[in-house]
Design a binder for these strands. Structure first.
Lengths: 193, 193
DNA sequence: GTCTATAGCGCGATAGAC
DNA sequence: GTCTATCGCGCTATAGAC
């Protein structure tokens, strides 16, 4: 198999495992079984586990940013933009066996056990997402469709916190519909519906 | 040392480690160094790691519930009650080296890797906290000090999600003041200030 | 109740053949 | 690029002396 295809498949499986069981519970053995190659072959592509984690994180953020930018750059209403944004998190919950959380939400809990380079990527994911939510909120406030008191940045941070935390809590409780319920409630609190 | 004192110290250290690095990164070796006894002695008190985790969880929930009930049963205003409740989470962030999150927030990420008995305790912590927030919100709505649209239960779940997620995100970013900022913003969105 | 010693396993990682 | 084989380590857990 071509190098890039194999690397890509390893990244897919690794990301899936981290989102389900966490990076500390994930092993090269797990990956090798899912990909269908031996542990040593994984090490050929990603010598250290830390290398693999960094690549997963970089790819995840790139993909996420791309989709979010498409939402922000669209001509949808701010309310719909925020809804679409939140649906990206909801979609994670609906994948596979409904036991996946956000990659960076999982790694937030394991942050003190991963390398500083990976930790930096997680933090940058947080910062970037908060900034994107700020953009959406500002558009809504300017157009008068969001009507809420207080600070836009803190509200954005709160929304991001609720999305990351909500994935973990709803995943545990197994009632996926409640995540959508929270999304709608969030929009109501913003005076957006 | 008396059995109960030793057990208590082991539980203290284990809880602290889980809140900082997670249950999968925590080992009997870590605990033995911090407590000052050997690994085998830990196994005498808690034969399996799963036993230890369950005891930590039971004690944590009992302690947390006790404090929350004191808040709810007090004659404080609903706004102050909610603020006090949120300050319990903020206090975690301020302990030690500022690298601790909520025990059950951490375990939410590791939920698929722990025993079903422990997982059940985590879920019960989530449910109980949501119910407590519902109680506070209802009091505030009845007294007319909380003015927000939509559903109380979903709002409570959203607040709890934001608190659990917020601890992980703010911990990563190292700016503890922002947690208090989010708390205040939360009260504003509820029409409480 | 605590200790030393060790079993038994899974892990990340490497060497070297093909 | 993938393989077999293996190293060395840390882990959970147990046996048995004190």
């Amino acid at each position: 198999m071509k190098t890039e295809d194999t690397k890509s498949k390893i990244l897919d499986v690794a990301q899936d495992l981290i989102q389900r069981i966490g990076v500390n519970a994930m092993s090269y053995h797990h990956i090798s079984e899912a990909v269908g190659i031996r542990k040593a072959s994984i090490h050929h592509h990603f010598p250290r586990k830390e290398d693999l984690l960094e690549e997963v994180l970089k790819r995840y953020q790139l993909g996420f940013t791309k989709i979010v930018d498409q939402i922000i750059d669209s001509d949808l209403s701010p309310t719909t933009k925020l809804r679409r944004y939140m649906e990206l998190f909801e979609a994670t919950l609906q994948e596979g066996n409904h036991d996946k959380a956000c990659l960076c939400g999982m790694l937030g809990a394991e942050l003190t056990t991963i390398g500083s380079s990976s930790a930096g990527l997680v933090k940058s994911f947080y910062k970037e997402n908060e900034d994107k939510i700020v953009q959406i909120l500002k558009q809504g406030v300017e157009q008068g469709v969001f009507k809420f008191p207080g600070d836009v940045k803190l509200t954005a941070k709160m929304i991001f916190s609720f999305l990351e935390g909500g994935l973990l809590i709803v995943r545990a409780q197994g009632n996926l519909k409640q995540f959508r319920g929270m999304m709608n409630q969030c929009l109501k609190l913003l005076g957006a519906v």
